[in-house]
Every structure is written in C-alpha cells, then in structure tokens.
Design a protein around this nucleic acid. Structure first.
Lengths: 205, 205
DNA sequence: ATCGCGACTGACACTGAGTATCAGATTAGA
DNA sequence: TCTAATCTGATACTCAGTGTCAGTCGCGAT
C-alpha cells in the first residue's frame, strides 16, 4: 500500500500523528472546524504550534489524512480485478474495496463524514485528493484496452463518475447513521448507468 | 437568469468588477496565481486593497466569478427541455447550453481554463461551486419523475456524472486550443454511459 | 440649489494560516 | 560513549481575509 512504518522513528511519528489527530478531531466536532485554531489544537495536545504544524501541513489534513491511502486502495483493487469484466463491474468492485478500507469503526467514519459535509473547506480539499487519484486509476482501467480515439475521454468520464459515486454513497450511508448496506447502495448507484437511461428509476433488487 | 443590472449603482459596480478582474487576470497569467498578492492587484488596478477585497471576497473569485451563472444556465435549460426525453439526453443538452454560455471568446476561455488547471486552489474552488449547483439540478431532473426508493441516489449520480463531464470535456477542448467540436466531445463523453458498458470504447459518429 | 441618506472608498488594525529559521534537546546507531 | 541526524519550541515573517471608522460621492426629495 503505502506507509508500513519500519524504523522506530517512523513508528513514533505515526503514533504521535494519530494522537494529535484524535485530540484535534474532538475539538473540531465540539466547536466546529473553522472556529478552532492551530493555537487551540496545539494547546489541547500539549505541543507547540510549530510541532503541530510539522505533523499536518494544513488544518484540512488533520481530518482528511485518513483518506490518503484510498487512491492506492482503488488502483490496487483494480489491478487485482479479472480483466474480462466490463469497466463498470471492475469500478464497482474497486469501490467496494475502498469502502471496506474506510469502514473500520462505523461510528467514527459517520462522525468524520458529518464533519466534512458541514465544512466546505473540507469538502473542497477532499475533492482535490479525488482529482489527484483519477489519472492513475484511469491508467489502470485502460491498461488492458487498446486506446482508440476518444477512449481516453470515456475512461476519464467513467472513473470520475465512479469517484462521485463513492462520496454520494458514503453521504447517503452516513445520513442513515451507517445502517444501510453499502454494497446495495453501490449497486443502486451504478444502476444509474445500467438502467435503460430512461427516466424511470426503479430501484433494482 | 440572475443579475440583469437595473440601477446605475448596479451598472457601475458590474463594470468596475469586470475591469478589476481584467487587470488581475493579466497579472495571474503573467506571474502565476499564487505569486500575486492582493497588494499587487490593488496597486495594478489603482484602487486600495480594501476596495479590491470588497469586489471579490476571495482571490479565487477574481478568476472564477465568471462561472457563477453556469448553475442557473443548466437548471433553466433543463426546465426548457421536453420532458419525454431520457435523463442523459436532457443533461447532455443542458450541458450544451452551459458551454454555449461559456464560449463567448474562445481564446479567453482557453486561457482561463489553463490557469485553473495549473492552480490547485482554483480547481478546488470550482469543484465547490459545482457541488453547490448539484441539488437544484437534481431537483429539476426529478421534477417530472415520481420519486421511488433509490431514485434520489440515481438522480444524484447522473447529475454528478454530467457535471464531471462538463470539466472533462472543457479540459480536453482547451488542450486542443479550442479546435475540437464541443458538441461532438459531449457526445463522446456521454457515450461512456450508452455504450454497452463493456471495455470496448469505440468512438461513435 | 441644497439637504440628507445611503452607498462607496481608503486607511488602519486585527486574527489566523502557513513558511522559514535557529538553537538546544533527544535519540539512533556505530 | 560519541556523533550525526532528527525532533522540538521559540520567534519572526508574509499574506488572506474580517471589521471598523471617518470622509466622500451620487441621488432623490424638498
């Protein structure tokens, strides 16, 4: 994947980072993201402002760094996919890997998603990460296919659509407090493409 | 639509805003978005920093305010659409209205898109606007349809996918320096959904 | 004409994010 | 144990964005 800490230095850094994020997250939920300053955070965590800023480049990253591996999770899952399936199936399954990775603690994820949803700055930064993931995912999706004229646009559209589905589904899921079945939600979302494109939108299954 | 200036006050404000944006845009293209400060901009435009900031709440808005009406353009176009068409056709045509609105001066739009592409902060803010447009567009798309279970998710996915297409198509178009036909690009992009979802992605027409 | 009101402007002060630097403490590893 | 790399806190700085205030300008009513 990405960060398997090897040296003791890495382990320490990783642990401190997690603890700082934990403390900060409580503050954000309590007071609101924009109302909390780095001074507040560093005081609450018992470190200097400088140190806090060394662990997280921006305030947004304090919340969103947990999403960093998602891009790799998706590309890896796409590689593991059998190549004889169609694009939508492969993308659907890759997205299922992504949500499996994210849903460790249901309550925590629901809380994070809620915080993100009501904070424009967090939404924006998350979309930015999403856009960074896209080129690599497109490359993996196209790897098996001979690239014809216009296929690059089509692959980009499909990947972009799939990534949109990820957030729409997670939003719907967190609105239900983590009750709904994420697999079924993914199926419903992808049905937006497989149903005959007419306006009748009967839910499948 | 939205802002048809009526009073002399409105006219003046609109004109000043346009002039400030014009001066600022040259600076951005010359030096790079992040390298230019409000102090630079206000000096170049011959007004105080305070005044400049009153016309544009943020530095991003100095560039992106031209996209503000796009949301309304899309919703209006969607209303004007014949209701017997399927979702994809209606969205495609609404997007065509949007690009028609944007493409007044080809060279200018290409330049703006180039600036946006190479400036993460501008990309992020633009996506934010896009997300703000979505709920209203979804509502218009669903207006004719009886809402069944899961149809809300499906409508959201379709609108999100369509908005992604808008930027993908504009990106491709500006990469070709405005040479390619935007209508055909839209057709190609929407073919990502209509082609049988297999991995063969032959360009239609 | 001029009076008064509302909006516009520039100047100033302020908060907070993010960057850069530096000296001293700490720790890994030879 | 010694050394070199790293971590830390302190400090200073730039710049975005907010808020305030006094002075000015345009405009409609008297």
């Amino acid at each position: 994947m990405s960060a398997a800490p090897v040296g003791t230095r890495e382990i320490s850094r990783h642990a401190v980072r997690a603890e700082l994020a934990r403390v900060a997250f409580n503050r954000f939920c309590l007071t609101g993201f924009n109302q909390v300053t780095f001074a507040d955070l560093s005081e609450a965590a018992g470190v200097s402002r400088s140190t806090f800023l060394r662990y997280f480049g921006t305030k947004e990253d304090v919340v969103l760094f947990v999403f960093d591996p998602v891009g790799d999770v998706i590309t890896d899952a796409l590689d593991a996919e059998r190549a004889d399936q169609d694009d939508w199936s492969r993308l659907r399954n890759a997205l299922e890997s992504a949500v499996r990775f994210l849903v460790r603690d249901v309550q925590e994820l629901v809380t994070i998603l809620g915080l993100i949803e009501q904070t424009p700055a967090l939404c924006a930064r998350l979309r930015e990460k999403q856009t960074e993931w896209r080129p690599e995912i497109v490359a993996r999706l196209q790897k098996t296919t001979p690239s014809t004229d216009g296929s690059s646009v089509i692959a980009n559209v499909r990947v972009a659509a799939a990534l949109e589905i990820l957030w729409i589904v997670l939003g719907q899921w967190s609105a239900s407090d983590g009750q709904e079945d994420l697999g079924k939600l993914l199926d419903t979302a992808f049905a937006a493409f497989s149903t005959p494109a007419c306006q009748q939108t009967d839910a499948p299954l």
